[in-house]
Design a protein around this nucleic acid. Structure first.
Lengths: 331, 331
DNA sequence: TTGAAAGCGCTACCAT
DNA sequence: ATGGTAGCGCTTTCAA
């Protein structure tokens, strides 16, 4: 069934039907109602492809992340999807995994689907790397990057100030006398390096020297973390506090240290990052830095709609984090 | 830029360009290469809307769930998206929330986008309720339902055998002497009632009587659960074991009971459901029933592709769960 | 206020 | 193997 059928039954032209469909003002109330009635009784649904072909948009946004099953990305995608919908957009989800070639491939697939924009969540693209590809995309549609920084025309970055958050908390720990702060992280994304820099700068600014044994890169796996901590302790190094780039790392560290006889937080306070559900579920519950993912994502969508409406939009917006106090560290 | 531009530059007709685009065999190797070269140098991207208008498909599937930020749905959506992509489909994500009117609205939006099928994850629709709406949709596109049961033409249900899983574990607990098994749940979805029935039937089949005080419906909130358990204990009822419809409920119950001086699992063993990351993160780690969400979702996608290729597909596929043993209950 | 008709960019059928 | 052309269902301009 199409616009012609409706026009026939209603005794008007397809132009009029189209006008009704698009809420055009130039239709008499009587005609409009007649057309609407016919649509209703026939159960007509406009064809979005034909519409898209004319308007060159189907109001769809491509949302890319490495993996929605990760709690952080899941929350982000959830908020993004809801905000987009409130603005009349659908979200095409694309979980790319870590491989950079796959990412490019998937971006191209989304481009072929003629999405109106791309939102990259926690892109693992680092500055200076592979910008050519993003550049090509940004030349045709806006690209919003959440927790990633790329300086190119038509790209907009929404960042949580992870550098500052880590910096502040390391400084705080140092000032409370915890000078051997162990830092755990797992990936070298933009976000990852921001955090790591926060740690390093804080250590320096506290007048301490960076001990590379206290900076451990380790996968999100309990056994790997147990092993890493065993090795550390074997070297005779006992961390005075632990800070992790993600809650799960902090929790696994807590489990490992508890197993080795340390009491958390009495012996070793621990701080996680993301303030995820995991933080609430662990025992003792995990003090964690909240990266304000909800804010980040709604800001991203607002930014996007502003771009669409031709407003002057800043290239970079930074949102501060906040510490959520629970049992593993009380400031 | 369109197919005409390519045809011009390559000195062929648009028909030939279209053939190259669609990998038709009736093109000489020489012509094909020439056209491909032109496409490459001009950076041509075919217009999916025009293509969709002709073929009446853009190879997109609507994926509905209440909320992707929930760990279970996140995992499900992740697997579904990946499987769909392997079959050349994109996933339009739609988080509906719990409101049934919203669900209907969103389903209609997806229909308007002319998706090729709908996958409902953990629908809260109950049998006999609101089938008319699904029926209408299923009359135009296939509807796959994960952990929900609706018997209608062109609907296909992929279920995890949650009834049996709960049943078996309650029976197991009873046989080990734990006769006052507390059952915690939070929602009355199809899935929810399957589990509850499993509990009730098991209690009966063990020759015990159902004690309604031991069946508690409570939100996924630590304080609510603390309060519910306090009330239970005040009545003088101490559960001999706890079974929960979701890991998070089990974990909060564990926290509450630990706080009240009980030792888990020595005093009270606990079993969760979903085998989520939370189970691994809690202390002690949570024994949990794995609902095989990965299997469920890949089966759903396979089922869908079979429907598309016109194969004879069963209306209902049930996949059994399995108990993953950790520290809170060792059978 | 309404209608006629020209696209939008592609696919697929029919010729050649 | 290639080209011509009629749609696909809609929006939008121009006329009336």
């Amino acid at each position: 069934m199409n616009i012609y059928d409706i026009a026939d039954k209603a005794g008007v032209s397809i132009a009029t039907v189209s006008r009704v469909l698009n809420n055009s003002t130039n239709v008499s109330q009587k005609t409009r109602q007649k057309v609407l009635d016919v649509m209703e009784t026939l159960g007509y649904t406009p064809n979005a492809f034909a519409r898209g072909l004319n308007l060159n948009t189907m109001k769809m946004i491509g949302v890319l992340c490495t993996d929605v099953s990760d709690v952080f990305y899941a929350k982000a995608v959830s908020v993004i999807e809801n905000s987009l919908r409130q603005h009349g957009f659908d979200a095409i989800l694309c979980c790319t995994g870590d491989n950079i070639e796959d990412k490019k491939k998937y971006m191209n697939l989304l481009l072929e689907k003629r999405v109106d924009a791309l939102i990259l969540v926690g892109s693992t693209f680092k500055e200076k790397l592979d910008n050519s590809h993003i550049e090509k995309i940004a030349s045709s549609i806006p690209v919003i990057i959440i927790n990633g920084l790329i300086t190119l025309p038509n790209t907009y970055c929404i960042l949580s100030d992870e550098f500052q958050a880590i910096y502040d908390n390391v400084v705080r720990l140092c000032h409370k006398g915890y000078e051997n702060v162990l830092y755990l992280y797992d990936v070298d994304t933009f976000s990852g390096s921001q955090k790591l820099n926060g740690y390093k700068n804080a250590i320096k600014d506290c007048g301490l020297t960076i001990n590379n044994d206290l900076i451990i890169k380790v996968p999100k796996d309990l056994n790997d973390i147990k092993e890493a901590l065993s090795n550390l302790l074997k070297k005779g190094i006992v961390p005075s506090a632990v800070l992790a780039s993600e809650d799960i790392l902090a929790i696994f560290a807590m489990k490992s240290l508890t197993e080795k006889g340390y009491t958390i937080p009495k012996d070793i306070p621990i701080i996680g990052f993301n303030n995820s559900l995991l933080a609430e579920c662990s025992t003792p519950s995990l003090t964690s830095i909240d990266n304000m993912v909800g804010n980040l994502c709604t800001t991203a969508v607002t930014t996007l709609t502003n771009v669409f409406s031709g407003e002057d939009v800043p290239h970079k917006i930074t949102i501060s984090c906040k510490l959520v106090e629970r049992d593993t560290f009380i400031p």
